[in-house]
Design a protein around this nucleic acid. Structure first.
Length: 479
RNA sequence: CGGGGUGUAGCGCAGAUGGUAGCGCGCUUGGUUCGGGACCAAGAGGUCGUGGGUUCAAAUCCCGUCACUCCGACCA
């Protein structure tokens, strides 16, 4: 391998320079590298493998809730974008346009999709005639392009991978139910698979998706106290259905516009789990999406029987359904320990002559630093599996504790400023006026994140204007 | 898009006042090692981001440009 090795000591200190730490971790653990065009990113095998596990986990859940996958073209006629006023206004500044084929100018410029509502609506208009065609529950896995001013690997790139679900429903109630159902799917997935607690709730009008009536989000709390919107679901009502003339004949025999939703989550989830779980030694990957769940390090590999036993161990664990790597390279054991800790592998097994004699291995878990325990090779498949579950639970627990400590109740601007200055989320009351949101953003660089479903008040007046307020909402800086 | 910073070997960096590129790590080969980043020996590797300009001479000075990065603005 021609590429250089990297060392934990090459990664910036997570406490004093979180931004640099993040970039270092992404590049040096080989999750991704920069592409040649501004804002683009190459997902390297280690990073892409995480994405594949995320895809599988989400896709299973989409199928289980009745959705089917399809694929729509990446190029969209510009006129489609213009049909929904808010939508074009929201996306026009950041869309990439195709204007020429070779030297020849196209009669109508094409949009490289920033999202697919428009083209999907256009097709849905052809496909839907009757209430019997509903609900229509389609998801696609795709790339989208949005020319953002500031980019960072996984968090915001010019092109990124995501899934977008687009559904049509007979009734408003059904569509609203779908919007919340998929939000809960995201929440459950983040908690159980990524070991990542999230705040779920509804977005303010200012923060909602261009063209949506309501937007909901899951917000993950990063270790630097910023919020990362990690998945959204939208209730569109009939906005797009009217704009694209999607109609169906109802049970009563009249033509109606269906109610629509969409939901999306992207490779940003990888950024979220890096910044949720990582530590001063590098990555800490949640076990269910870790490309390598168990790494086996042979000790004194040239001694009689060590490698043979290591292979046998690997085969046993692999046969039990675990993702296992046996590192037979010439590097010293100490080097390997550091390497796989940096790469976030959840479980390490050391196997040397002393262990083999005892029919055991030395086990170390990434989520608890410095701990080593002996584990018997008898039934090691089930003990490692149980351990992975425990690691996932522990990682979630730790993250949840940290999150709790990062949320403070705020009553007024002084409180909110104190929260912002100490990199915390403020949970407080808001009058609902855009003016207050704008003022808070301008003075503190803090935005509203979302309104939790539990609206038990934490005060009675708006943190900004002091007028009577009924909406409870999270305020935070965000990525 | 505004303001600051950076760009020299795979990585991290050094190369005052211009004189034709170096260090550490890594990499290759051979050998000894192996329970927390091993050691010895011999090697390979760079048109100094890029395009122009000034000069006898440019990594170094000037102009443009591209990328990365930080802080804002923008942004599911």
């Amino acid at each position: 391998m021609a590429e250089s090795r990297t060392f934990v000591k090459d990664i910036a200190d997570i406490e004093s320079d979180f931004s640099r730490w993040y970039t270092d971790v992404v590049l040096k653990t080989r999750l991704a590298d920069y592409g040649p065009v501004k804002g683009t990113m190459v997902m390297r095998p280690y990073g892409y493998a995480i994405w594949e596990h995320i895809q599988r986990g989400l896709d299973d859940r989409f199928k289980a809730t009745g959705h089917e996958n399809a694929y729509f073209p990446m190029l969209i006629p510009y006129s489609y974008l213009e049909r929904e006023a808010e939508h074009v206004e929201g996306f026009a500044p950041e869309v990439a346009l195709v204007t020429h084929i070779g030297a020849e100018e196209l009669p109508e410029k094409l949009v490289v999709r920033p999202t697919s509502e428009t083209i999907i609506c256009e097709m849905y208009a052809k496909w839907v005639q009757s209430y019997r065609d509903l609900p229509l529950l389609i998801n696609q896995w795709a790339n989208v392009v949005r020319w953002e001013k500031t980019t960072r690997p996984f968090l915001r790139t010019s092109e990124f991978l995501w899934q977008e679900g687009h559904t049509l429903h007979e009734t408003e109630a059904e569509a609203r139910e779908e919007t919340l159902r998929m939000l809960r799917v995201y929440e459950e997935f983040c908690q159980n698979v990524l070991a990542m607690p999230v705040l779920i709730g509804r977005k303010s009008d200012k923060e909602k998706f261009a063209g949506a009536q309501e937007t909901y989000s899951i917000e993950a709390i990063m270790q630097d106290g910023k919020s990362l919107q990690s998945g959204t679901t939208h209730y569109f009502g009939q906005n797009f259905a009217k704009a694209f003339d999607i109609r169906f004949q109802s049970r009563a025999g009249v033509l109606e516009h269906p109610y629509q939703t969409s939901f999306g989550a992207s490779t940003r989830l990888i950024g979220a789990l890096i910044m949720t779980h990582g530590d001063e030694r590098g990555l800490r990957l949640p076990p269910y999406v870790a490309p390598v769940q168990v790494v086996i390090i042979p000790i004194a590999a040239k001694k009689e029987g060590v490698l043979e036993n290591a292979h046998r161990l690997k085969d046993r664990l692999t046969a039990a359904g675990l993702r296992v790597k046996l590192d037979e390279s010439e590097n010293s054991p100490g080097w390997k320990f550091n390497e796989y800790e940096m790469k976030g592998v959840p479980v390490r097994l050391e196997l040397g002559p002393r262990d083999i004699e005892k029919n055991a291995a030395v086990l170390s878990r990434r989520d608890i630093a410095g701990e080593k325990n002996e584990v018997s090779l008898d039934g090691i498949e089930s003990s490692v599996k149980a351990l992975l579950d425990d690691i996932n639970a522990n990682m979630y627990q730790k993250a949840a504790e940290r999150n709790r400590a990062k949320i403070v109740t705020v009553q007024n601007m002084d409180d909110l400023k104190a929260a912002a200055d100490s990199s915390k989320f403020g949970l407080g009351m808001w009058c609902g006026e855009r003016a207050c949101e704008d003022k808070i953003k301008e003075s503190l660089q803090v935005t509203t994140r979302n309104m939790p479903f539990d609206q038990t008040p934490v005060g009675s007046t708006c943190v900004c204007c002091g007028k009577k307020a009924k909406i409870k909402i999270y305020f935070a800086k965000s990525y």
